[in-house]
Amino acid sequence: MIKKIGIGLVVLIAMYVVLAMLGPSNYKVERSIKIASAVENVYNQTSIYANWAVWSPFKKADPEAKYELGDDNQKIGGSLSWSGNLSGKGSMTTIKVTPNEKFLYKLEFVEPWYMAMTSSGGFIYEEQEDSVLVTWFNEGDLGFMSRPMVLFRSLEDQIGPQFEQGLVAIKEICENMKPTLVVSEETVESKSILYVSESSSLMSSEIGAKIGAAYGEIMSLVGIAQLEMVGAPMSITRKFSLAEMMVEFDAAIVVDEIPEGLEISGRIEKGDTYAGKALKTVHVGPSTNLKATYDGLIAYIKDNGYEINGNSWEEYIDDPTKVPSEEVRTNIYFPVK
C-alpha cells in the first residue's frame, strides 16, 4: 500500500514537472481605452494611489481587505500595500514617473506562498486631438512551479477583465469632472439629529449600503416616535485616513425636536450638528467623482486663507434611485475659521 502511494506521488510530481516545462515562462496583459478628458485628469486619477479607492476593480474582489498608503506623492518610492483573506498580502511601489506620459510600479505578492510573485505594471498616456488613449498593463516572469496553473486558466483571462472594469470606471470619472468649483461661505445653525456611527474601508463598495441601513434604522424610530424630519439626510465624517484607507462617519437624520423622554436603543444616538461659519459646494454627479470635488474644496480652503474647524459633512439632496446619477446633488460642507 505504502509502495503504491509512493509510486502515485512520483507520477504526480513527474506530471507537474512536465506541465511546468510546457507552461509559459512569462506573461503580459494590457488593455486600453480612449478617454475624452484632459491628460492631467487621467494621469492624476491613476498615479495617486488614494484615487484607486474609487475605481479599483480589486476592491470588489476583496472588499474587506485592509490598505495602507506610503508617500502617495506621484514620485518614485510611493506605495500602496494591502492584506486580505482573498487578495493575500502584497504591495505596489512606484518605480518610474513621467508626468502625463508614463506611471510605472512594481507589484509584489508575498502571501500566501502559492501567490508569491513579483511583476511590473503601469499606465501609458497618449494624448490625441480631443482625448487620451490610456493603456494599463502588467507583465512579469512566471516561476517554474506556478507555470502549470496558468495552462488551465491564463493570466490574460484573470487580469484582463479586471483591467477593463477599472478603465471603464476611470473613463466615467474623468469625463464627468466639472471644470469649475463654486464655493460659498455660510453661517449654519445647529440642528437636532439622530445618527448611527459606522466605518468602512475606502476600497470597499459597501459605504452606500451601510449608510442606507443606518437610515433605515433611524427612520423606523422616527416613525414610531412620530418625529418630524426637517432636513436632507446627512453623513458627518469623523475620521478620514488615506494612510489607513478608511473612513469613520455618522449617518444622520435631521429632526425638528427630540423629546427628552425618547427611548433610544440599539445603534442609534442623538446629538446636535455644528453651528458657525462653513464653506459649501454642491457636487453634481455620481459618488465616484466625490473625491475630485473634495480635493477642489480643500485646495480652495488652503488658497484662500481658511482653516478647517471640525468635521466635514454631506447632505444628500436627491434620491439616487429616482434621479439619474449624473444629476444627483450632494452638498459638501467644511466648518472653517
Score class of each variant (00 low, 15 high):
118 T>D: 07
171 K>Q: 15
242 L>N: 06
23 G>N: 10
193 I>W: 05
85 N>S: 15
54 V>P: 00
271 G>V: 05
219 M>C: 04
166 G>T: 08
94 T>Y: 02
329 R>F: 09
252 A>K: 05
34 K>L: 08
289 N>P: 00
90 G>I: 10
171 K>D: 10
326 E>V: 04
316 Y>S: 12
243 A>W: 00
174 C>L: 03
75 K>Q: 15
182 V>P: 00
38 A>G: 13
218 I>L: 09
231 G>M: 05
154 S>V: 05
246 M>C: 03
145 M>H: 12
306 Y>G: 08
211 I>S: 10
24 P>I: 05
319 D>W: 09
132 V>W: 09
42 V>K: 06
152 F>I: 14
152 F>K: 13
275 A>I: 07
165 Q>V: 09
279 L>T: 11
99 P>E: 13
281 T>F: 01
225 A>T: 07
35 I>A: 10
171 K>T: 09
159 I>N: 08
107 L>K: 00
323 V>A: 07
291 K>A: 12
165 Q>R: 11
205 S>R: 08
232 A>M: 14
282 V>E: 00
172 E>D: 13
52 W>A: 14
51 N>F: 03
36 A>C: 01
332 I>V: 15
242 L>R: 08
200 S>C: 11
108 E>A: 14
10 V>N: 01
154 S>Y: 11
157 D>G: 14
74 Q>I: 02
158 Q>N: 13
278 A>T: 13
291 K>S: 11
56 S>W: 02
303 D>A: 07
210 K>M: 01
84 G>W: 09
66 K>M: 09
282 V>K: 01
67 Y>M: 12
71 D>H: 13
63 P>D: 08
245 M>K: 12
328 V>A: 11
320 P>V: 03
9 L>Q: 03
82 W>N: 12
12 L>T: 11
80 L>E: 14
332 I>R: 01
185 E>S: 14
91 S>R: 14
257 E>W: 00
323 V>F: 06
302 K>Q: 15
68 E>H: 13
71 D>P: 01
102 K>W: 05
31 R>N: 09
277 K>P: 05
26 N>T: 13
250 D>G: 03
293 T>I: 05
244 E>W: 01
299 A>S: 15
94 T>W: 03
275 A>C: 03
68 E>Q: 15
231 G>N: 10
218 I>D: 10
105 Y>A: 09
79 S>R: 14
128 Q>Y: 04
330 T>F: 11
127 E>I: 10
73 N>R: 13
179 P>H: 10
179 P>Y: 08
248 E>M: 06
103 F>C: 02
316 Y>L: 11
149 M>N: 12
176 N>P: 03
46 T>Y: 04
85 N>I: 03
336 V>L: 07
213 A>G: 08
16 Y>H: 08
290 L>D: 07
277 K>N: 11
93 T>P: 06
250 D>N: 12
57 P>A: 08
295 D>F: 00
193 I>Y: 07
91 S>F: 09
258 I>G: 09
326 E>F: 08
257 E>H: 12
321 T>Q: 14
207 I>C: 04
31 R>M: 00
103 F>G: 02
